[in-house]
Design a protein around this nucleic acid. Structure first.
Lengths: 343, 343
DNA sequence: TTGTACGCGTTATCAT
DNA sequence: ATGATAACGCGTACAA
């Protein structure tokens, strides 16, 4: 029955360390956050005590007191889509050594789920948001606006960014790829797409525009809202080929579909690229591994992540940012699944 | 110069809502957590006020006051390895509607990084840990023990679980697959492996044991610590074939390597399974998509995630758990990349 | 059904 | 260089 109060968890606190060393707890706190303001000898005793006691700071208390959590939320549509693992890696890289913790969330391609996650992470007191895409619910926009936190929208180039943005133009990418194919001499082009989210629709639109501009038909297309995977690529290709004869080339909305389409061609004895050309989108590892390798659009996912983190950090620390809208471009990679020029 | 104090963030608090409604803040708090204990009419006015003001609870404050954060940490080695996206999905599923938030971390296959993440999430005040694997640093073990939180180790079956565990026996899986191959008549078997972490070594050990028991050579093996990817599968296969002639079958440590090996065979004009058999490990989507489809060991990743979440929840809410060590088994899937029985 | 008093573990502010 | 005090926003315990 000492003067002890609640202290339900046996957890070691700043106070415990302070008592152990014989100083006040604010000194311990300082030794941790501003070591140079604490005398050498004391600092060593403090470090030793922290080690002995196994003290672990309580970030909740710290965040409550300082009104900053030193954490940011990163919201991506999917964790199973390899596209985003590179983005995540980039963001992580960008925050390494900064003292910020990245809190990861996945929205399952749902704006409602995104809105919910935004609330959740707001209640966690994150200091900023990095969010894939520009399509948010009205409610989410309001919450974010009200919170007044730094926000970086990634992957695309929003017409009206909430705050900052890093990405590239998917419509232009779709258009550029298709134009490159036209230059190779392809005239009968098809398109298959799955999980037609905003970005997927943009690249599809680019494909259509390129064909329209060339006076070619853009009718041989087949898209679905279903999640993308390898087998779906095969199915869509099969259906497309049944419906449209004479296709020389099928552009796939992403690399998974393209790989699946390639496997289907192998199953059917269709040689690629001799009988049929194939392209993907994103430049995942698999596009360089298959036989034949897959032509695709290489997107700067890792660099987007790094740039977003850098932008966010600069905003968080210095307050301002030099370039609120960054276009990181893309690269057309023509490989073995498309015929060589003049062939 | 009112009696205002710090109130640096313009954030809406429980008190703001309370004043708006004209009750005390504890009533608002209750309306949120135990709605049935607040009178109907009042509850509606409270909900309305919350909506108007855009109140978002501060979990840090809540956690600080209640000593529970209603969040758990899920630690996986990698986010780019598709193996773990299924696990994550399972855990998420298991926690849906529970009110718990899953905080995700990836260790990059490093025990030191894992130890660091454990400290980080302890400082976030998580209520429990779900951790891939059983190999932790001594320091991590101590921290976890001292924290006294529920822990679920997943993917494997640790000899001495820290607390609870859900997984299966990788050595047995490697052995069972190899045995199945022997029954198909294969006698000259090779093995390639990458990222030889504990689990990868276990399945390799199973492969070796099966060959030893059959009196066959287990010399044709090639492993590396390098991260696994498709192209590496091709490289390793190439090297193995150069070093060992007469191989009828190459077992790959995971599906990525197997797919890469298959692509390499296609490149070299080696027909699978006629000239060479191939197997993978895990049962990722790609194994059912390639031509030929890949024989593999299907591992219960999603179910492991769900079971871990369920176990954790039951521990968190009821205090106890019926079966602290769950073996979820595995399944041998013989497909087109291995020859048919008696062929 | 609703309210009061206090503490959770930390940091900001101001003092010494 | 170090300390005292008062918040941060909420939940627990107990009271009314």
């Amino acid at each position: 029955m000492t003067r002890r109060t609640r202290r339900t968890s046996g957890r070691v606190t700043l106070d415990d360390v302070a008592r152990r060393v014989g100083v006040s707890k604010i000194t311990i706190s300082r030794a941790l956050r501003e070591p140079w303001r604490v005398s050498e000898g004391l600092r060593q005793r403090i470090d030793a005590a922290i080690d002995e006691l196994g003290y672990i700071p309580n970030r909740q208390a710290g965040a409550l007191a300082s009104a900053r959590s030193r954490s940011i939320a990163l919201l991506v549509p999917s964790l199973s889509n390899a596209v985003f693992s590179e983005v995540i890696r980039g963001v992580d890289e960008g925050f390494v050594g900064s003292g910020y913790q990245v809190l990861l969330g996945h929205t399952s391609y749902s704006r409602e789920e995104e809105a919910h996650l935004i609330d959740t992470y707001l209640s966690f007191g994150v200091d900023g948001f990095i969010i894939s895409g520009s399509q948010h619910t009205e409610s989410a926009r309001q919450r974010l606006a009200r919170a007044g936190l730094p926000i970086c929208e990634i992957m695309e180039l929003p017409e009206a960014p909430l705050d900052m943005a890093v990405g590239f133009d998917h419509e232009a990418a779709g258009h550029a790829l298709t134009t490159a194919l036209l230059e190779l001499g392809y005239r009968q082009l098809g398109f298959i797409g799955a999980r037609m989210d905003y970005r997927a629709r943009r690249r599809f639109a680019g494909w259509q525009r390129a064909l329209n501009e060339a006076g070619l038909s853009a009718d041989a297309c087949l898209t679905t809202e279903a999640p993308s995977d390898y087998r779906l690529g095969g199915c869509l290709l099969g259906t497309l080929l049944e419906r449209h004869s004479g296709l020389e080339m099928v552009c796939c909305g992403n690399d998974d579909l393209a790989a699946g389409a390639l496997f289907e061609c192998q199953r059917r004895g269709i040689t690629v690229p001799d009988q049929l050309g194939l392209t993907g989108y994103n430049g995942l590892d698999i596009t360089e591994a298959t036989t034949p390798t897959l032509s695709t659009v290489v997107t700067p996912r890792r660099r987007i992540g790094i740039a977003a983190a850098t932008q966010m950090l600069s905003r968080l620390e210095n307050g301002r940012v030099t370039q609120p809208l960054q276009d990181l471009g893309f690269e057309i990679a023509l490989r073995e699944s498309t015929r060589a020029r003049g062939e």
